[in-house]
């Protein structure tokens, strides 16, 4: 029973927020356009959140995704400009997109290899790579952004009226939910996070699992980076600052445990939507951005505190 409450807590909170906002601002909040808008904004974080969920289930952390997002965007945009000039062909833009994805994959691989082969804590490795990636962004173009005015498809295109970024987001989420539940790799992610030593004793190649997790998170970040670049038709070296904390917050609100072994993709998606609907609601209600920080900070603490409370009661009923 407690387990059910725990799993539905973030969902219930999300529903509550949507209901309250619908009641307060029925005209501005409760329409398709606004919903699609929120989803489109949430897709960048949500896509990276999928990777971060796997990282956190494996008892790790990835602080570098914000900087990585900026770096992938910069390199992708740079490639588009180099190949296609000021009037890039669709082919050049596709190539640039691939460069962005490839860069993300390599950045993730870099993190994963350092974590496993040098046996360093993920916190330290990704704290370091966060600085490295950000630094490269500034060095690349002397702190200036790359503008790619015709790179619009990923950010503003649509499939049958649904923004393309939302389509990508939904596909990735569906694949990830399936992979975590129905693949051996997904099972190993939970095992490594729950007890790394025990997983190793059971023949799991722990290093390989971890490298894959960070590499795939890099790929997710690359995808998100190209969407973000396309939305603003420019790659900013300052993009994605503090993004990692937003994403970690969403994963944790979704019920994942920072000590590993626990977490779900659906939880993370709910956590992400929760944050974005709150932002959206605050904006519609005229609450300043500054106050939004306070509200979201408080929500994180409350969500995790309630989760803890539900856990400790569950363990009391077990022993009692």
């Amino acid at each position: 029973m407690n387990k059910l409450i725990r799993q539905f807590l973030p969902f219930a909170t999300l529903t509550l927020i949507v209901c309250v906002l619908s009641a307060l601002e029925p005209d501005k909040f409760l329409n398709t356009e606004n919903f699609l808008n929120v989803l489109r904004r949430a897709s960048v974080n949500g896509i990276i959140g999928v990777g971060m969920t796997a990282v956190i289930i494996s008892a790790g952390i990835d602080l570098s995704v914000g900087s990585m997002l900026a770096l992938c965007g910069m390199l992708g945009a740079f490639a588009i400009i180099k190949v296609g000039g000021s009037e890039p062909t669709p082919m050049a833009m596709a190539l640039g997109t691939l460069v962005g994805l490839l860069m993300g994959t390599l950045c993730g691989l870099f993190n994963g290899v350092l974590i496993t082969k040098l046996k360093l804590p993920p916190f330290i490795v990704t704290l370091g790579s966060m600085g490295i990636f950000r630094g490269i962004c500034y060095v690349m173009n002397d702190g200036q952004p790359y503008n790619v005015p015709s790179y619009r498809y990923l950010g503003s295109g649509d499939v049958a009226g649904i923004p393309i970024s939302i389509v990508i987001f939904v596909v990735i989420v569906a694949v990830a939910i399936f992979a975590l539940r129905y693949t051996r790799f997904g099972r190993y992610i939970y095992a490594v996070g729950s007890n790394r030593e025990a997983a190793f004793h059971a023949g799991v190649n722990v290093d390989r699992v971890l490298i894959w997790i960070y590499t795939l998170t890099g790929l997710m970040t690359g995808i998100a980076a190209m969407i973000a670049t396309s939305r603003t038709i420019s790659a900013q070296p300052t993009a994605g600052q503090m993004l990692e904390l937003d994403i970690i917050a969403a994963v944790v609100i979704g019920g994942a445990s920072l000590s590993g072994g626990r977490g779900t993709i659906t939880g993370t998606i709910i956590g992400t939507l929760l944050i974005y609907f709150l932002r959206n609601g605050c904006t519609l209600l005229g609450v300043s951005t500054n106050v939004q920080f306070i509200v979201i900070g408080a929500i994180i603490i409350i969500a995790v505190a309630l989760d803890q409370l539900a856990r400790s009661q569950a363990s009391v009923t077990k022993t009692g």
Binding site: R187, Y190, N195, A198, A199, G261
Partner: peptide, 21 residues
């Protein structure tokens, strides 16, 4: 507890962990 089981995970998962293949 330290090197045998993934304590938080399901019994069935623990039993099949080395045997999935």
């Amino acid at each position: 507890k330290r090197t045998g089981l993934c304590l938080g995970l399901a019994c069935s998962w623990n039993i099949t962990l080395p045997n999935l293949e």
